[in-house]
């Protein structure tokens, strides 16, 4: 009887480990349109309404904890933000004049990029779930393909870029945050226009790394990093030009290239409502999204090296 119990226990363990390994291998090896991905998408479709309901029911609890957390955080930032506010007010007044001049010039020279935000239609969505682990930084939202949301749509909040839609079901979608290990965004330093590639700093969930900046690029702490948009028509970008991503916190020089640490502007830990930028089917962003989705899943997500190249391919002409 005892031997039988031991045999059964070991058999169960071996079966479960083998099943996990088979799933892992099959999922990692198949394309995004594969059978296991389809099962996952269908599951997401089924659980989206449940998640939405759970999220609404437990919102008071989350708000209570969030209130404590936000209060502590806010107190520590108050003095610094007051100083920053004074400085920004002065800058704003100066920039308003520049902005008027810029708008006039832009109209004169027809610089309205066809991939500007105007080419997109914003769909507001509530966040109904979030991933707890360090490596897969994802959130679930309550708008899906039924509302025009598709894979590779950019997702933003008032502060800046949040991420990109990686799975879209009829009633919900999954968004990989800019800090997810499979995401790469072409960007420029706003003050100088120097191009680079923004990637997550893996293991540091609140930080990004802007890489491949030429060594002679002038960059300083406090500079803003924004999406570069499409620079070359041969390499269309998923993201419109000029969406704020983050602020430079430190600069590191390694030989011929320079990399900078970037603090995301959007508070990715406490997202409640986001905007998904959708676009017409035949527009240039749609072509960019189609191009991005043609990159195999194992390369587009999960592995950083390949993920970076996928992001680079899908997102820019930042190098050129």
């Amino acid at each position: 009887m005892h031997d039988k119990t031991i045999r059964r226990r070991r058999a169960v363990l071996i079966a479960l480990v083998a099943l996990s390994l088979i799933l892992l291998t099959a999922y990692f090896g198949e394309a995004r349109g594969g059978r296991l991905h389809a099962v996952q998408r269908d599951f997401l479709t089924v659980v989206s309404p449940i998640q939405d309901g759970t999220n609404k029911a437990l919102k008071p609890v989350r708000d209570l904890f969030g209130w404590f957390s936000s209060t502590l955080h806010a107190k520590s930032q108050l003095a610094e933000l007051r100083k920053q506010n004074d400085r920004l007010r002065a800058e704003l007044i100066e920039r308003q004049g520049d902005e008027r001049a810029y708008a006039t010039l832009r109209r004169l020279y027809h610089l309205d990029n066809e991939l500007g935000v105007a080419a997109y239609h914003a769909v507001a969505a509530s966040v109904i779930g979030a991933s707890p682990n360090l490596w897969n930084r994802t959130i679930d939202i309550n708008k899906g393909s039924g509302d025009g949301v598709r894979e590779n749509d950019p997702v933003i909040v008032g502060e800046g870029l949040v991420g990109v839609v990686t799975e879209a079901g009829p009633d919900g979608a999954q968004v990989s945050l800019v800090t997810d290990s499979g995401i790469g965004v072409s960007a420029i330093i706003n003050e100088t226009g120097a191009p680079g590639l923004v990637e997550p700093k893996v293991g540091e969930p609140d930080s990004l790394l802007m890489q491949y900046l030429p060594a002679n690029t002038p960059v300083s702490v406090g500079n803003y990093v924004v999406t570069s948009g499409t620079i070359s028509s041969g390499h269309p970008s998923l993201f419109p030009r000029g969406i704020p991503i983050g602020q430079v916190t430190s600069v590191k020089e390694e030989g011929a290239i320079k990399s900078v640490n970037v603090q995301p502007l959007a508070n990715l830990h406490n997202l409640e409502t986001v905007q998904v930028l959708t676009y017409p089917p035949d527009s240039a962003p749609a072509r960019a999204a189609h191009f991005a989705s043609s990159v195999p899943a194992g390369q587009a997500q999960g592995t950083s090296g390949a993920g970076s190249s996928a992001g680079q391919l899908a997102s820019t002409g930042s190098g050129g």
């Binding site: 363990l13 479960l16 480990v17 099943l19 996990s20 390994l21 088979i22 799933l23 892992l24 291998t25 099959a26 999922y27 990692f28 296991l36 099962v39 996952q40 599951f43 997401l44 659980v47 998640q51 779930g129 991933s131 682990n133 897969n136 994802t138 679930d140 990686t166 799975e167 999954q174 999960g302």
Partner: peptide, 23 residues
Amino acid sequence: FGIGLLVDLTLGQTLGLTSLIFT
């Protein structure tokens, strides 16, 4: 295994990864 699979399915992660660790 069950909880791991549920987490992987719900969060769109690589299937089997969390199952293996949680098993």
